[in-house]
Design a binder for these strands. Structure first.
Length: 289
DNA sequence: TCCGCGCCCCGGCCGC
DNA sequence: TGCGGCCGGGGCGCG
């Protein structure tokens, strides 16, 4: 599933292809249309299909940014406005001249939003399980989900933000894994990268926050940043159903030391599996204390 | 007011 | 070969 490194690769792929292009039409899949008719928020959220379409048609795509796992499309007609996207579990974008050119059967079958561009190409949002979303925002302040997100982990203020958050009373009795997966504490770290970072920092995922020393907290933050950076460097991981704009998945999963492995990448011992923070967690009893 | 829990959305895919 | 159940990001309602 896409976490920060995967979303970053989607952003880069989109940015190199569609900046400067203009949205001239929007078409929805029958699943989206039926879902909205049944008052479900299928993919397009917080706005009617007609209003979304009216809002974005005629706009030039100026920039594509990322905040945590959200993609922010900056649009311009007579003013700057935004589409805010989340890939959920299985979302993907493709830039093609027709849907059949996607070339991956499940993503062709499960296309949901088709943005026709002035260049004649189509920006397609596909989503197999439909957990992803697209929202419209006239102003960024209209997007409350972005406001509560911690600074990007690579920003200088991110570590002190994290340390301040970790010191709050409400987190003391929580598992450290649950807390680093919370986007108000660190942005963009999902289950897989959390498992990897805890392994690199040699910290057991079920440890209560209050039991961690300052040195452990700082080491863990360092490893979260390191593993997210490595994920970006290796094109993201292909665990589950991540695809970049080219339809490719990355190779980061081959570099994992603990997630999805039978033996620990450090000591060679068996990998333990346990549900921690309601998520399938992989760790090494020997290396992580 | 805050918190924790359960639920909802969904289909590929695993295991029997 | 068929089919039931598992999985999960994020939001929401309830107690």
């Amino acid at each position: 599933m896409p976490e920060l490194p995967e979303v970053e690769h989607v952003r880069r792929g989109l940015k190199s292809r569609i900046i400067g292009d203009k949205i001239i039409d929007v078409t929805y899949s029958s699943k989206v249309i039926e879902g909205k008719q049944q008052n479900k928020e299928t993919i397009i959220k917080g706005i009617s299909l007609e209003d979304f379409k009216d809002a974005v048609i005629g706009s030039e795509i100026m920039d594509i940014k990322r905040r945590s796992k959200y993609l922010v499309f900056e649009l311009m007609n007579d003013h700057i406005h935004y589409i805010i996207g989340h890939l959920g579990m299985s979302g993907a974008y493709f830039v093609v001249s027709k849907i059949e050119d996607i070339g991956i059967i499940n993503y062709e079958k499960h296309w949901h939003v088709d943005f026709e561009l002035a260049s004649g190409r189509h920006l397609i949002y596909s989503d197999i399980r439909r957990f992803g979303e697209l929202r419209y925002a006239a102003e960024l302040s209209d997007a409350p989900q972005l406001r509560a997100i911690a600074p990007e982990p690579f920003e200088q203020s991110a570590e002190s933000h994290y340390l301040t958050k970790l010191a709050e009373k409400r987190w003391q009795n929580k598992s450290i894994k649950e807390v680093i997966m919370n986007h108000s504490v660190i942005s963009g770290c999902g289950n897989i990268y959390a498992c990897e970072a805890l392994h690199l920092a040699r910290i057991h995922p079920a440890r209560k926050v209050e039991s961690l020393t300052k040195i452990e907290k700082k080491e863990l933050f360092k490893q979260v940043v390191a593993v997210l950076n490595e994920g970006i460097r290796f094109g993201g991981s292909s665990i589950s159903s991540y695809r970049n704009v080219e339809g490719e998945s990355g190779s980061m999963q081959t570099r994992f030391k603990i997630y999805g492995r039978k033996t620990c990448g450090s000591c060679g011992g068996p990998v333990s599996h346990e549900v921690i923070a309601a998520r399938n967690t992989h760790y090494c009893e020997n290396c992580q204390k």
